[in-house]
Design a binder for these strands. Structure first.
Lengths: 212, 212, 212, 212
DNA sequence: GATGAATGAGACTTCATTCAT
DNA sequence: TATGAATGAAGTCTCATTCAT
């Protein structure tokens, strides 16, 4: 998991103690939830004094937000940067299936190395307006327009049925998320044939929104 | 919402105070979450003394469990009672599409009148082993075998592709749940054409697991 | 000191524990100041659990305000009730000297039985806007107008020099307060001839503002 | 205010950082009180590291004492140096009125340029034995004997009534302090005719203790 | 001398739970 | 059965002080 943090924050300057705090907090909160994890526990596991936590994050909730918001932006960032959508889509992916495959594969790998963070995000999103705000900003500003554009593009190419974009999205998103949640959170210990599952997920989506 | 509780508990003997407590608890916990709702708040909204809550539910968590476990059984109960599966399936539903429609419609209505309870269930499932136990029992013992049987039945009738049952279920469940969660929890205020959405949901599923 | 509290609050309904809390808080805060007195200390001295304090006063500062505001109103109340000023002044006190004597005597006795409370008031007034508000209300609304009226009355009777009322007040108030503070707070343990001191205080005031 | 500090400490060797620390501490403590001012705040406003404060003042209270004790001695110093009393009094001031005027005028100006320091002194005197010690030493050793001597001198000259010195002092001190506190602390923003007020203050005192 | 990250004791406050009435 | 005052353990957070750099 230290990989994860290094990955996520290699641009910020985190002191070693700060990294320990984040690691401990992620572990504990992801296991037991935000409200069942006390700052003293986090401090103990991180090997720092409790006061040290508050030197870096002035509030317990600040710590949570500091943990969770990067996941939100990192989850959507790579695939939905504007120029990516504009330029790369049409050149790179011959058809919607290919795009879908690349996308799911890529996000699958991201999810795989960020399970605890994603768990925390899903669990706490419901109760913390601060997290909701970060989430909404990311999705309404970046993800949603990008998906829309992609859908329009492949509709024009005749690969998608003439359903409202909303409907197409509402078909895709829960299918993909449902797969990933089952895979990584609900039944992470089961043995999985990931390639086959990804293909099946794509089949489901294409069956629902693709042109025969 | 009092309807809901009366419906859910018409077999148990609940005193009026107990009903007020449950109603208050459901409202508050569903709005703000279990850990952000204090027993004193529940007591105040229910119009009872704080001690009264503990006369009926010896623990705050007991109260939560008392709220949540009925939803779990009620959610699966009607459709998955063993005799229902055995006898009714083959007689009633000409094909898998019809079964799916009836099932989704029926559970849709149930969800509609139990939004707060379902919200609580989803939010707290992650943190309370007691709830997980109830959930697992219900699903492994009742729902899963029933679905399995139904799938086998319609596979034999040649309506479903020859995928592992597991895969078929993992296609169906997130698709249906994803629809309902979007419909009732994420965007309850949007105007919805429910019939159309249900059909689209069925299309997606059939596209993924049905034989062409 | 229990006298004091009974006196001050005999109209409110205070539980025994609440009285213990107030007594302990008054003692400790008056000795060591608000910021040097912890709620746990107060609880210990009062013989209650720390939580009990917060059942009655939702904040440490609330407790302080509850202690201090009654002194503010009680200090000015009896002598400055409007009807008192209107009717009693001119009938009861032949001259300003007599009024002054009655007033100082009366407030002297009040101060005597409320030393700890007055200490707290003086010490904390500077830092707590809540207390300042109560103080301002009491003085601008009640005390100040009453004094003004009395001064005008005795000016007309030719007993006071023709100074601005402001000046007269600024002569009287610090002289009286200075006496009482020296008497009760700075040197309470010295032996005092109170009657003589009161007369001297009156002489000073009359020397400054009275007509020869 | 930097004037003030330079004035007060031109004999000590203060580094620039130390001066910044003192200035910041005086400003903040005088505004918000000792307990509401944290060392980190002082450090920030002074533009130094928190540790630097503790290099110069080993304790937060040491810093307070370092701020407050000079005011105590400076307030009394010039007028009450022994030789001053002995030699200058009888030569310089024809009568008590003149002495009083010179004294009040002089201390008035001192107070005027030291408002924040005096505020701190008054506020914290009650709670810090260290400050009380400095105060007592100054007054019992220097101020009190000097005043006594002066009073005796002017009593012999027949200008003061034959009251106990104690009584005369207790008339003078609160009257003068009361005026200055009203002038500089309670209502500093009101427009004041200082000369007139000083004269009135003297009138009050003379009315109380002077021979007619 | 100066820094500022780290400390840890202790402050205030919350709240599920108990129990005498 | 119902009450609600009382409890006390545990939580979050503050801050004067230390110390390695």
């Amino acid at each position: 998991m230290s990989d994860m943090i290094e990955t996520l924050r290699n641009d910020e300057n985190l002191t070693p103690k700060q990294i320990e705090i984040l690691k401990a907090a992620i572990e504990l909160i992801s296991e037991k939830g935000y409200y069942n994890t006390s700052t003293s526990e986090i401090a103990k596991r991180a090997g720092v004094a409790e006061g040290t936590i508050f030197r870096h994050y002035s509030t317990k909730k600040d710590l949570l937000v500091a943990i969770v918001t990067p996941v939100i932006s990192d989850f959507s960032a790579p695939f939905f940067a504007k120029q990516f959508v504009d330029q790369v889509f049409r050149e790179t992916y011959a058809n919607f299936r290919d795009l879908l495959y690349a996308f799911i594969k890529n996000r699958f790998e991201f999810a795989q190395s960020n399970v605890p963070l994603i768990k925390i995000l899903l669990q706490e999103l419901a109760f913390h307006p601060e997290i909701q705000a970060a989430y909404k900003e990311q999705f309404t500003d970046k993800v949603y327009p990008a998906i829309n554009q992609a859908i329009d593009f492949y509709k024009q190419k005749g690969e998608l049925r003439d359903l409202p974009n909303e409907t197409i999205i509402r078909t895709m998103v829960p299918t993909i998320l449902g797969f990933m949640m089952t895979r990584f959170i609900l039944k992470p210990d089961q043995t999985w044939d990931d390639e086959a599952e990804i293909k099946q997920t794509i089949d489901v989506i294409m069956g629902g929104v693709g042109k025969t």
